[in-house]
Computed example of a mutant assay.
Amino acid sequence: MIEEIVTVVGVEPSRVRVAAARNSACAQCSSRSNCSQGVLSQWQKDKVVEVDVLNPSNLSVAVGERVVIGLPEGSLMRASFLLYCLPLLCLVLVAVTARQLGMGEIEQVLLSVMALLAGFWGVRRYTRRHEVQPHYQPVLLKILET
Rank of each mutant, 00 (worst) to 15 (best):
residue 1 M to D: 05
residue 2 I to Y: 04
residue 3 E to G: 02
residue 3 E to M: 09
residue 4 E to L: 09
residue 11 V to A: 00
residue 13 P to H: 02
residue 14 S to Y: 08
residue 19 A to E: 15
residue 20 A to T: 08
residue 20 A to S: 13
residue 21 A to H: 12
residue 25 A to Q: 11
residue 28 Q to C: 11
residue 30 S to Y: 08
residue 31 S to Y: 14
residue 32 R to E: 11
residue 33 S to Q: 13
residue 35 C to F: 02
residue 36 S to K: 11
residue 37 Q to S: 15
residue 44 Q to G: 14
residue 45 K to L: 06
residue 45 K to G: 04
residue 47 K to S: 10
residue 49 V to Y: 01
residue 50 E to C: 01
residue 55 N to C: 01
residue 56 P to N: 08
residue 56 P to R: 09
residue 58 N to W: 07
residue 59 L to K: 00
residue 60 S to N: 13
residue 61 V to H: 01
residue 62 A to R: 07
residue 64 G to P: 00
residue 65 E to Y: 03
residue 65 E to F: 01
residue 67 V to N: 00
residue 75 S to E: 08
residue 75 S to G: 11
residue 75 S to V: 06
residue 77 M to V: 14
residue 79 A to R: 06
residue 87 P to N: 08
residue 87 P to R: 07
residue 89 L to N: 09
residue 91 L to E: 04
residue 93 L to I: 11
residue 93 L to K: 03
residue 95 A to C: 05
residue 98 A to V: 03
residue 99 R to S: 14
residue 100 Q to T: 13
residue 101 L to Y: 10
residue 101 L to M: 10
residue 102 G to L: 07
residue 103 M to P: 03
residue 105 E to T: 14
residue 107 E to P: 06
residue 113 V to D: 05
residue 113 V to M: 07
residue 116 L to Y: 09
residue 117 L to P: 10
residue 122 G to Q: 08
residue 122 G to S: 15
residue 123 V to I: 10
residue 131 E to I: 11
residue 131 E to D: 15
residue 133 Q to C: 09
residue 136 Y to G: 02
residue 137 Q to D: 00
residue 137 Q to L: 00
residue 138 P to Q: 03
residue 139 V to L: 01
residue 141 L to Q: 08
residue 142 K to L: 03
residue 144 L to N: 08
